[in-house]
Amino acid sequence: MALRIKSHWWNDEHERSLDEIGGALAFIAWRIAVDKAIALHCERFVYRDDAQRLTVIQEYLIFLIQIADRLSHEQLDDAERRALITAFAKKLVVHVQDNSQDLLGAGDYGSPFLDRLNARSEEYADFQLDDEGPTYPFLRHLGFEIQQLMGQEEENRWVIDQVMDKDGWDAYKRFAKAFQDLFE
């Protein structure tokens, strides 16, 4: 089933705050990340449990935050960009906390996600987004991190290729389009 993403504001005449745009981006990113986690399962990659699936979703979210940061660099000044990415990340922490709590029970799931986001942001800092999209090292890093999470079992051996060649690109394209739509 195709993922339908609504990325146009209901009332176009009302100007949106960066906080509102960040919230919309978080909702869209969550849907894309969940869709990509499901796509891996549909391609016969195996999750050992829901916790593992949630960490894969989080890796996609971290990747999409990096994409948003690169895209916003072209449209916003530094203060606006920082405000947008902060609002986006804060809303994602809420999504991660709520959904993880629903699946795994009570606990602090937002703080570990934020710690992982901060660590990954340093790792992604050298990777570029060019006119065609994320560069090979950018996508390879996403694929590598998901491969590490999925393990080296025989059925998950080629997950890095799936992420780099198909799912990472698709996530980028969907998210970049939604990002541009929200600023129109």
Rank of each mutant, 00 (worst) to 15 (best):
E122T: 13
A68W: 04
A87C: 04
A51T: 10
E123P: 00
P112C: 11
A24M: 09
R116N: 03
L92H: 04
K90H: 09
K91F: 03
D69F: 01
L104A: 06
E43H: 15
A33K: 00
A68G: 11
G105I: 04
N99K: 09
K90P: 02
V46D: 02
A29W: 13
G107S: 00
C42K: 10
V34A: 15
N99M: 06
D35K: 13
D108Y: 02
I57V: 13
D102C: 07
L40C: 02
V56Y: 09
A89Y: 02
Q97W: 07
S111E: 14
F113I: 07
H73R: 05
F63V: 10
L64T: 00
Q66A: 07
A39P: 00
D77C: 11
Q97S: 10
W30A: 09
S72T: 03
N118C: 08
K90S: 14
A125G: 06
Q52M: 14
A68I: 08
V34K: 12
I67M: 10
Q101V: 08
V96P: 00
D50H: 09
Q66W: 03
R31V: 07
L71Y: 04
L76K: 07
I65D: 09
A37N: 11
V93N: 05
Q58L: 01
V56T: 10
A24E: 14
E43Y: 13
Y60M: 06
D98E: 12
H41I: 12
W30R: 12
V56I: 09
T55R: 13
A125W: 06
G110L: 01
L54I: 11
L114A: 10
A83H: 09
Y60D: 00
F113A: 01
I57P: 00
E20W: 11
R31Q: 13
Q97I: 05
I85V: 08
L40A: 03
L76S: 12
L104C: 05
S72A: 11
S121R: 11
I65R: 10
D108C: 08
E74L: 00
L61G: 03
R116A: 07
A29C: 15
Y109M: 08
H41N: 15
H95S: 08
I21M: 10
F113D: 00
Q101F: 08
I67C: 11
E74F: 00
N99S: 04
P112T: 08
V46H: 13
V56H: 04
I28Q: 12
S111Y: 10
G22Q: 09
S121G: 05
A125K: 10
L114H: 10
F27R: 14
G107W: 01
D69Q: 02
G105M: 05
I21A: 05
L40V: 06
L64K: 03
L54T: 00
K90W: 10
F88R: 00
F113G: 00
D102K: 08
A106G: 04
N99F: 04
E123D: 15
D98G: 07
L117H: 15
K36T: 12
V96H: 02
A26K: 14
F113Y: 10
R120Q: 12
R70D: 07
F27G: 13
S111L: 13
R120G: 07
R48T: 15
A24H: 12
S100E: 01
